[in-house]
């Protein structure tokens, strides 16, 4: 397959995301311009100009009318997707690490870092009333490094710096419902399966785990030799793709080969590695499957987003 290489960012990609139909691909990087692309041909549709710091997270709502970005310039912005104009800006005390719309897109949350004297907090907003947050939940202990909504928007699943994974009842009580510590190091990514009944975690402890999103029970474990920065579940096949590699700061001391910057495909059930895709010159920071399962994209520390459309052999493979 010949991937499309999207080169709109000057610095490392931090997160990529498809919209519901998968025709648009959103990418954010450590430069200050979130970018949206047509996923079919790699055409750049636009950039959302306004932030002035690294951007850690992006999400798009269900009907692709609003885009939410969280930045290290201590703000979250809500954008109009068609024109790229800022609709609202929310000042925060520290960098915004993760943000996302709920499934219905009537609610959204963002989480802040515990730096510069401020504590890590979850902010819950209602899109229909942006005057004040519905709820602010301060987090004691380790900060949130990744978050994802649970099924039916009933709770928020958060991954923490110390490797803990928690369920927060954000909409009703704001309490922590459950906390498990299955990972030994920072949770770098959490992604739901297409039906939201499972989530896959990615951790710096070199593993990714498949969990039941209702009770955070570990179902499967995928092991690699390098920190995992992102993991995604295929919506159509029993595949999980893991991306990561050696820490960016250690890259200069070793060869490209030692870095293991390949995207690695694992069988969802048998936990065995079944394939690899090369391409990035640095660790992969974010991976997403296209909602139709026919392609996937990866964003790397090298600043490129690569859109891979699978060959027919991919669909013929049976384990």
């Amino acid at each position: 397959m010949r991937p499309l290489m999207l080169h709109g960012h000057e610095r490392a990609i931090t997160q990529i995301r498809y919209n519901l139909e998968g025709d648009l691909l959103f990418s954010v990087a450590k430069d200050s311009k979130p970018t949206v692309w047509y996923s079919s041909n790699g055409e750049r549709l636009g950039t959302f100009n306004g932030h002035n710091g690294a951007i850690w997270c992006i999400d798009v709502n269900r009907d692709t009318s609003r885009v939410l970005t969280g930045s290290a310039d201590n703000s979250t912005r809500l954008w109009d997707c068609e024109t790229g104009t800022t609709l609202s800006e929310f000042e925060t005390g520290s960098a915004v690490r993760s943000c996302m719309f709920s499934y219905s897109s009537n609610l959204f949350v963002y989480t802040t870092d515990a730096t510069m004297g401020s504590v890590c907090e979850i902010y819950l907003y209602d899109v229909r009333d942006l005057e004040a947050p519905v709820r602010v939940i301060p987090i004691e202990g380790s900060r949130i490094s990744a978050a994802v909504w649970g099924p039916f928007d009933e709770f928020l699943i958060t991954g923490h710096e110390n490797g803990a994974i928690c369920r927060y009842d954000v909409t009703r009580s704001g309490h922590c419902l459950q906390s498990v510590k299955e990972h030994k190091a920072l949770i770098s990514d959490l992604q739901p399966s297409s039906d939201q009944i499972m989530i896959v975690t990615a951790s710096k402890d070199n593993t990714a785990k498949l969990m039941d999103s209702e009770n955070l029970e570990v179902l499967k474990t995928y092991r690699t030799e390098r920190p995992v920065n992102s993991a995604a579940i295929s919506p159509t096949k029993d595949h999980v793709v893991l991306g990561g590699g050696q820490e960016a700061r250690e890259v200069t001391t070793t060869t490209t080969k030692a870095g293991k910057f390949d995207a690695r495909f694992y069988h969802l059930i048998y936990e065995e590695e079944i394939g690899r895709v090369k391409g990035h010159f640095g660790p992969i920071n974010s991976l997403k499957f296209h909602p139709d399962g026919k392609s996937y994209s990866s964003g790397g520390e090298d600043g490129y987003v690569r859109v891979h459309t699978f060959d027919s052999s991919y669909f013929e493979f049976e384990f």
């Binding site: 397959m1 010949r2 991937p3 499309l4 290489m5 999207l6 080169h7 709109g8 692309w37 041909n41 790699g42 055409e43 750049r44 495909f265 079944i274 394939g275 690899r276 895709v277 090369k278 391409g279 690569r306 891979h308 699978f310 060959d311 052999s313 991919y314 493979f317």
Partner: peptide
């Protein structure tokens, strides 16, 4: 901004 990259292979 958009470049077609070299062939990569995924052999499952």
């Amino acid at each position: 901004t958009t470049v077609i990259a070299d062939d990569v292979y995924l052999t499952l």
